[in-house]
Design a protein around this nucleic acid. Structure first.
Lengths: 343, 343
DNA sequence: GTGAAAGCGCTAACAT
DNA sequence: ATGTTAGCGCTTTCAC
């Protein structure tokens, strides 16, 4: 009823001084207890802890950060959560960060234009982060164009970021080689590739490796088909491929596009793997339940997250650490979407 | 070579005082420029901005937060990123938060035990957040058991959290009703349900609504089959269901389990939808590319994120806002996995 | 083992 | 339109 009444949450948080007064010690001693320092008498510590509890004391992280210069927080810059790989990577980073006693702040970027990336970096300047992990599953931006706050530790996941930053990535080339050679060893001679968008460096590396494997086996290299990672785009290319009798195998650059391609094959009455074999890339949770269960390249996103986090923490704390490119091993999971060609 | 040399990043960040000195003004004026206040002379502003630029000034958010008591940051507590719904919700929250000029800190919880939840809250006490969004897609924990920092604004997504907190959720009951009635109107009389885990409240609400729809139509209610949201669990139940000639329709509580069930149906030679119709729940990106394309319940996660964020910001700023339960409308997307029973 | 003093970088309140 | 003063809550340094 009264306008002068302030809402509950406006009440001042209890501070160290309040605890100190109640416990009859200096706030210095409260600080020591709060930080688990050893040089405090047991009896004193008990009194302080009791006082903290009664008045509901919670340390103020802003003050702590202001004083110590450390936030125990890292930023993760990413374009979208909506791809399987990004989500798994983020999950892994969050887990690894929690283990290292860091929290994670999300810095989403609406679209991969230079403008919004720079905007993110600007926001980041104000952000309370000790370091940054950048996840660039697809981009057309040169890292050199971007002004990161100087001295801020950075680790890049899945990118071409030259020598400037530490890079952690799956061994994309190896994965594509494994997939293509699997198809070749089955006896396929005409192996199409549904790639990711031209802007994606992962996609480019997979294309490259597919081409090399084909050439090494003395096979023709068909024109690359570029999708956009979506099942829908895989479906479109799958429809075109299904019409071509000579194509007996499709290597899709991710599981979603493989799913779309299989749908096209089913719709047009081409059997998988009887008429056409299909291989994916990612090994998402669902792939083993596709129809038929999908042969695909398994990526270890957990390891990506752990390595990225470890490297970043080392950089933040100034610990010695490896530099350059860190490639996480990858493996092929053979299921029922691949078989020898009919003839 | 020398041990006394400090790494680059130890160099002190330029402060407002540095900018002030260079620009020949007081640090107060720098503060005003930094915060976009209007009462600064244009010429002065230009001098300050130039000075900021030359020495590379970046505001210190810890100091700002310490002074103002505001972090412009919210925490998101969640069990796992690995479900489609959670991921989409997080994505939507992050986007809505960015629009409202808030950043988002992830507070992952390894497992839904009371211990680790309380641990998260404890961590949160130290965390620099103005409010919290809790995503509980599945849990067996009573919110009353949990001691949240008093006075901290909280919004809960997808939960049973009684009257204590503002709750935002999809209209789960409506969705399950839509799905079941669709099957009934097609002429199905025996409609099985593959539910989520018993611990999940969303799952429970879907079960309830499926039962009611069946009863309302005068149909028998078969025993509920509980899965764990995974395609694998849908596959297991699907195998059992495929063996029963009387079952002509399956309503799965999410798309993954629907996918698994369809795989079981394919493997055992039962046609979808010829012999058995299948309906899912979620409408994930891939569902339209399943074989056959899946009829499913579409959830508007973007709206969930926006409402949750809006409510939380209102609570934080003390703006008037609605309380209680906010239900986001939901709709059925009919594709090719459902048809009239053969009879 | 404990306390007193100083100051991190910023902004609110009050001057001018 | 600009400057001065004070202090947010904490930790570091030094004294005892």
């Amino acid at each position: 009823m009264t306008t002068s009444e302030r809402p509950t949450r406006q009440r001042r948080e209890p501070s160290m001084a309040d605890v100190a007064k109640l416990a009859g010690v200096s706030s210095q001693t409260v600080s020591r207890v709060s930080n688990g320092h050893t040089n405090v008498d047991d009896a004193t510590r008990d009194r302080v802890v009791a006082a903290m509890r009664t008045i509901g004391y919670r340390p103020n992280s802003a003050a702590r950060a202001l004083r110590s210069g450390r936030f125990q927080n890292i930023g993760v810059i990413m374009f979208t959560l909506s791809t399987f790989g990004n989500m798994r990577t983020l999950d892994a980073i969050a887990t690894a960060a929690a283990a290292a006693d860091y929290s994670v702040t999300l810095i989403p970027i609406p679209d991969p234009t230079l403008g919004s990336v720079s905007g993110a970096y600007t926001k980041l300047s104000t952000q309370a982060v000790d370091g940054v992990i950048i996840i660039f599953e697809a981009h057309m931006i040169d890292h050199a164009d971007i002004a990161l706050p100087p001295g801020l530790p950075v680790v890049v996941v899945d990118s071409n970021a030259g020598d400037e930053y530490m890079v952690v990535d799956n061994d994309q080339g190896e994965g594509a080689r494994l997939a293509t050679e699997h198809l070749i060893s089955l006896g396929h001679r005409s192996i199409a590739h549904i790639a990711g968008p031209p802007s994606s460096f992962s996609a480019a590396r997979r294309v490259e490796s597919w081409q090399q494997s084909l050439e090494k086996a003395g096979l023709d290299v068909p024109e690359v088909l570029h999708g956009d990672w979506s099942a829908e785009s895989g479906y479109r290319h799958g429809l075109a491929l299904a019409a071509r009798e000579d194509v007996t195998a499709i290597f899709a650059a991710n599981d979603q596009m493989a799913l779309g391609a299989m749908r096209a094959l089913h719709e047009t009455g081409r059997r998988v793997p009887g008429d056409v074999s299909v291989v994916g890339f990612d090994d998402m949770e669902e792939s083993k339940s596709f129809w038929p269960p999908l042969t695909t390249v398994h990526q270890d996103f957990g390891e990506i997250g752990r390595r990225a986090m470890q490297t970043l923490v080392d950089e933040i704390t100034g610990a010695p650490h490896r530099t350059g490119r860190s490639l996480v091993p990858i493996r092929l999971v053979v299921r029922e979407s691949t078989a020898a060609p009919r003839s």
